[in-house]
Structures are given as structure tokens and as C-alpha cells.
Design a protein around this nucleic acid. Structure first.
Lengths: 243, 243
DNA sequence: CGTCGGGTTGATAACTTTCAAATTTCGTGG
DNA sequence: CCACGAAATTTGAAAGTTATCAACCCGACG
């Protein structure tokens, strides 16, 4: 597949129309892509972490471990996302990231990354938008945990993931393929595994959504949106702002 | 007061040693500073928001309103912070921000901001660090809400605020001045006003901290750090990385 | 056919919200 | 300086949500 159709290009193009020339710096990275198996760490908490990964295929999850041993998943990365962006500016990484599936990525050093974007203001703008969007996602997770109960929160989270995947052509209003297991969902949403199970059951019996191994199915998209008070606008992906 | 001693310069200097020349672009902003009264909105949710504010004095809080009317506070800004940075890249702002006290700020347009940092790689690096740090704070709020109960979460949050204020000379291990009211703390930590009140009482009677109108006092800093599993490293402020 | 990693269920305990009311604090005008 | 009203804080009791603990189920796989 060519870069132009890759998830990264699709995602960045959602904000800024980018010509082939403007995408050129990414071509170099794209040619260097390789596979990494399931269950590998890309980023390690408390290590000097100075590498980022462009994610073309597969899923990654970022998490933070506490001294008690409990894990809080702080985000999932899907095709088109960049992994470890925050860690490159810090002395030591404040989180870990590991692969949920076999992934196709390019490892990029911080200097390469900065160098490539430096003389390309449109591409740089697209990257900044992507960073701002990641932040908006964090903020929405805070709202999820602060103001929504477990059912609403779960619905909201799975809808958001759907919107992100739809942007890169991997989902639609009917659902999407999803390698997340219930215990990860629990660690992501701040509830126990048993409770998330009951929550998912509720959503299922009410005909709202079906979460099963490897697939999320929106049984009633509209009612789900209403239940979760889901408003995509924070993802700001209504087509290019700069043409 | 001169820029060099302002909270903004102090904060950025925590990451990159900046000469007077390198700080020059900020001088222009600093000369334009003005006061804004308590209770004013600086950023409005759902509006085309394209202005940022450099905050020199006073406190601001950022929040998101839901359609149900409930409010989730997503962060507090203190001297040295920049308000609304995320909203400048979005079509419409995903959050609101309003003043908690009378503040001293400079309003900066996104083009001015980008222009000033463009040819100044050290200053730009400091700004990027600041953005990454803001993100780390969001992440920690997610961990707070996902993995810590209300007591630990409150302790953690108030310790973090103390560390941030200490960086700009406004706090120490004994405490800091703080205009946050209990209902804001509740809306920030995802609990009710009544519950935060009971939590604060617990912390007080256990001799850990005293939260009272306009002041936070750490009665036993070390035990508090232990209770909250607080590890400042995610704030990455141990002195300049680049000298 | 047995094992193992998910997934599911039930009962009880812990934590947090809700609702309702009292008390304290603080600024303002008399 | 004191009284007053509004805002903020505090308290109590009951209800609701989520965690914990302890099993059990089930399908994939060797």
C-alpha cells in the first residue's frame, strides 16, 4: 500500500489537505516500516524514552503502573496514531506502551521527527492538530470518569473509539473490529473486570451494543449516542480546515 | 517586575536555560499584559476560540459542561501557565476557561504565538515541554480518577498543585495560597461537594492536610506523599535538561 | 479429554451520592 | 461595631453504585 492511503496520511489529511510533496517527509518513515509482534513493549515507564512510533496497522495500549501494582490504561492507539510522542520531551517516560496485536510501525527518533516537520508548515500544523486532538481525548476521558457512570462511560468510550477508527476507514456506524479484552476495558475505564462485564451485559440486553471478543457492534447507534451524551465535535474531524 | 522573574520565564527555565535574548519574544507579550477581573470567561466552549492567554498572576480554571448541565473541571491554571493552548488549533473550543481570581494576563493570537517561537528553537523546545507537561498532568488526573479513591485522589491532586506552584515560587512543603472552593474541588475530582467535604475532614483529623478557604496546609507532607503514592517525576521539573 | 485464559454470576461489603437541614463565614450597610 | 443576608461549609440518614470475594462456565487447543 502506498503512503497516501495509509492511516497516518488519512488522519492528518482530515485536518489539512496535504499534497504528495507535503507528505514526502513521511514517505521516508513509511519505507522503513516493520512488524512488531503482539505483547511487546514499545515504551517503558521510568526509562529514558526518546523514540516515537508511527502506527500504520494494529493496536497499541498506553498505561501507567502504580506502586501498588494496579494498572491504569490511559489510551489505546489505532492505525494513524503516533505512540510515545509525549515521552520524547521528558527525561524519563511517564508511561508504558505495548502492542495489543501484531503491529506495523516505524520507529522514529525525536530529532528525525522534528527535522522532518520543521520546514513544512502545513505538515507541522497537521501534527500539532493531532497532538491537540490527543489532548482532547484525554480531557474527555477525565469527563468520562468524573461525570459519567460506568454504563454511560463505557458507551462513550466505545463510541469515541468508533469515531477514531471511522476516520481512518476501519469502522462505521455498525461497529468495528477491536482486540480489546474486558480486563483492559476495565483498567481503562476505572472499574473492575466483574463490573465491566455486568455493564456490557446491560448494554447488550438493552439492545444498545454488543462487545465481544474481537468486535464491537453498535446495535442501536442513535440511542447509544444519546445515552452517552456523545458529541463528536471534540475530535474535530469534519474534514479539512485548511484546503 | 521584569519578565525574567515572571512565572512564565521561571517555568520555562525549569526545562531549558534561556538567555535574555532567547526570552525576548516573550518580552513583547509581557509588556502588553493587563488585568482581568474575577469570574470572567477567557475561553468559551463551542465558540470559535483562537486566542491564548499567558498567565502571569492569578488563577484560572478550565472546564467542560455537559448537556445535563453538570460541570467537569479539567484543570486549574496558575502563574506561568498558558490558557487555551489547545483551543487554537480546533475549529471550535472544546472547553471553557474562567478566572478564579483577578488575573494578570496577555492575550496572544495563535499567529503571534507561533511566529514568536518559530525562529527560536530553545524557546520552542521549552514550549513543547510545557505542552507535554500539561498532558502528563491530564494523564495523572485519569490515574487519579481511575485507580485512587476519593481520599488518595484529593491528596494527590493537592500535592501536584503544590509542586506546580513551588516551581514558580508560590508554594513549598508547608503549603500554598489557594482560591479553590470545595465545590470546585468536587467538580474537579469527580465527587460531590458533600463528599469532598467529608474527605477533607478525614485528611484534617488524621493530621495530613488542612484545606481551608484560601490556603492549603500540608500538616504532614511525607505521610501525604505516601498515602497518595505521589511521585513528582511526571512533572519532570528537576532543573534544566538543556543548559 | 483436560487445561487454561477469558467470561459470567451471585452475595456481601465498601464507597459515594442524594436529599434535607443546620451551621459558619464573610462582605455590606446601618 | 453590629446585624443581616448570601455564600460556603458541615452534618446526618437513606439509597444507589461499584468493589470484593468466591465460584462456575465455556470454547480453543494440545
Amino acid at each position: 500500500m502506498s503512503l497516501v492511503y495509509s492511516a497516518i496520511a488519512r488522519k492528518l489529511s482530515a485536518f489539512v489537505v496535504l499534497s504528495k510533496e507535503e507528505l514526502a517527509p513521511l514517505e521516508v518513515f513509511y519505507q522503513r516500516r516493520r512488524f512488531i509482534e503482539l505483547g511487546q513493549d514499545l515504551v517503558r515507564q521510568d526509562r529514558l524514552g526518546q523514540v516515537v512510533y508511527m502506527l500504520y496497522e494494529g493496536w497499541v495500549c498506553s498505561y501507567k503502573l502504580q506502586s501498588s501494582g494496579s494498572r491504569q490504561i490511559v489510551g489505546f492507539q489505532v492505525p494513524g496514531d503516533i505512540v510515545g510522542l509525549r515521552s520524547i520531551l521528558f527525561r524519563i517516560s511517564d508511561h508504558s506502551a505495548s502492542t495489543l496485536t501484531r503491529v506495523e510501525v516505524t520507529e522514529v527518533s525525536s530529532t528525525d521527527l522534528i527535522g522532518s516537520f520543521a520546514n513544512n508548515s502545513r505538515l507541522e500544523k497537521a501534527l500539532q492538530w493531532s497532538i491537540a486532538r490527543d489532548q482532547a481525548i484525554f480531557v474527555e476521558r477525565i469527563v468520562d470518569m468524573g461525570r459519567r457512570n460506568a454504563v454511560e462511560r463505557t458507551a462513550h468510550f466505545l463510541l469515541e473509539l468508533g469515531a477514531r477508527l471511522t476516520l481512518v476507514g476501519l469502522g462505521d456506524k455498525h461497529g468495528y473490529a477491536c482486540p480489546i479484552l474486558q480486563d483492559m476495558l476495565a483498567d481503562s475505564l476505572g472499574v473492575t473486570e466483574e463490573h465491566i462485564n455486568r455493564v456490557l451485559k446491560q448494554l447488550r440486553v438493552h439492545g444498545l451494543l454488543t462487545f465481544r471478543r474481537s468486535r464491537v457492534i453498535f446495535d442501536d447507534f442513535d440511542r447509544l449516542v444519546e445515552l452517552a451524551d456523545f458529541n463528536v465535535s471534540y475530535l474535530d474531524q469534519d474534514g479539512p480546515l485548511l484546503t
